[in-house]
Design a protein around this nucleic acid. Structure first.
Lengths: 244, 244
DNA sequence: CTTGAGCATAAACATATGTGAGTGCGGCTG
DNA sequence: CAGCCGCACTCACATATGTTTATGCTCAAG
């Protein structure tokens, strides 16, 4: 089971140095591996999971369903993301998580997390920080949703996903694999699929991106950032002199 | 300084029992009290505060400014809320916090928080949980923003504020004091002030609320909830059998 | 090889919400 | 007491985005 938590450790080390002891604790925390097929739920709203899920491979989306079947995606997760660390303390899921692709998931029992918080205060702070960054992303999305045009919002999302995938080494040249449909993008941005299509056309016409199949290529990063009013600070990807 | 943290303790105790020792630790954590006048910034984007702010009295709003001066409010805080507990770990503020009214604030040094996380794992989990609930609120707002009509969104917000104020004993009859302008409501919901006005008219005409000056009265709770597609679970106000 | 499902795309039309400008009220402030 | 400022409120008009419906492509299944 050793080094299963590689991607998470990599991520946490951006925030602060991990001792060997802490790394071992994380690695031992994984109870088992779970595979979830594309389009299946990883967790459902109302569930009371006993483990938290660490996404090792694949893409996943947190979502809520509203009355008339409309859906809002509130987060998109990539490899290395702890997709429901909060369920450790929040207990009942107030939203579902969907596998956008086939996913490989490491399960960390809440009991183990509790032990970690009892024994490893520094590691606890890093895990906490991890959930705080989720919150920062939520705030950024809220701002983009409320105050940016649909086009700007899309550009913003693309910038974010690009940097997050880059941070885990999933960028080739200027291209990322983004296995997400236009309908799902619509649910993420709060738009209709028709309008998602319009907006993508526009970004293409402006020469900012190419998007064929799952391959999304950034053609003009600077202008894309400008259109999306994007600054990356909220992602906390640079190792500041933070030492939690 | 004793019992300054009353409102916070009250809130944390909804999530789990606090030992006397833990209560004392919290109370001793307050280094000093700060007064901020209405319409002043409590913290600005880019600040690197050395203390976290616990709102003892008043209303505050987290916000971000977008290019053309547009503003998005991502949270509204009331007495008992830890408005920037996350700055303890996130270090740099990625958004500002504005005093909507005169505010009384307790300052908790980050160094003290660090000591608490070293020595009080159970209390640490409660504080963490506190930030996780902020995250749950963000997700709910995102959903309301992306997938509800302006009217429903407004109804949703009113339901939430009503329950949160009720939880801290700030409801008289069916009336809450909501010292927030229509422009600020617009920045919260991502709407123009004109449309905020229209939407409020509609809720009034439907006999759901009365809103004169700062006094907001719920006239028909059940129908308001229905219009706003509101369920309160995400607020974690009921003491479930949670024992972090 | 055929079929059909899922998806991207398109056009015509509908509407929720934004914009700009203006009125009037109430409460500070000089 | 006058004057002004912030705020709620209105109207006419503009537009971004949603809705409905349809087409064609690609790919997997039979």
């Amino acid at each position: 089971m050793a080094l299963m938590t590689n991607s998470l450790i990599l991520k946490l080390e951006k925030y602060g140095r991990l001792s060997d002891d802490e790394k071992r604790a994380l690695d031992n925390a994984i109870a088992r591996i779970r595979i979830v097929d594309a389009d299946e739920d990883i967790i459902r709203e109302g569930d009371r999971p006993t483990d938290s899920s660490l996404l090792l491979e694949g893409f996943a989306a947190r979502y809520k369903i509203v009355s008339n079947g409309r859906r809002q995606i509130s987060a998109i997760h990539v490899a290395g993301d702890f997709i429901d660390l909060h369920s450790f303390l929040l207990k009942t899921m107030d939203h579902g998580v969907l596998a956008l692709t086939n996913c490989r998931i490491a399960l960390v029992p809440h009991a183990t997390l509790e032990r970690i918080t009892d024994e490893y205060p520094h590691l606890t702070r890093l895990l906490w920080l991890n959930t705080l960054i989720d919150g920062a992303v939520h705030r950024e999305w809220l701002t983009a949703m409320g105050r940016l045009s649909a086009t700007a919002h899309m550009a913003h999302l693309i910038c974010e996903l690009y940097l997050r995938l880059k941070a885990i080494g999933r960028v080739e040249g200027d291209t990322i694999q983004l296995p997400i449909t236009q309908a799902e993008l619509g649910d993420t941005l709060g738009l209709s699929t028709v309008h998602v299509n319009r907006v993508l056309q526009e970004l293409r016409k402006e020469g900012l991106i190419r998007f064929q199949g799952d391959a999304l290529t950034i053609l003009d990063w600077e202008r894309l950032k400008k259109v999306g009013e994007f600054t990356s600070t909220y992602l906390s990807l640079q190792n500041e002199d933070r030492q939690p």
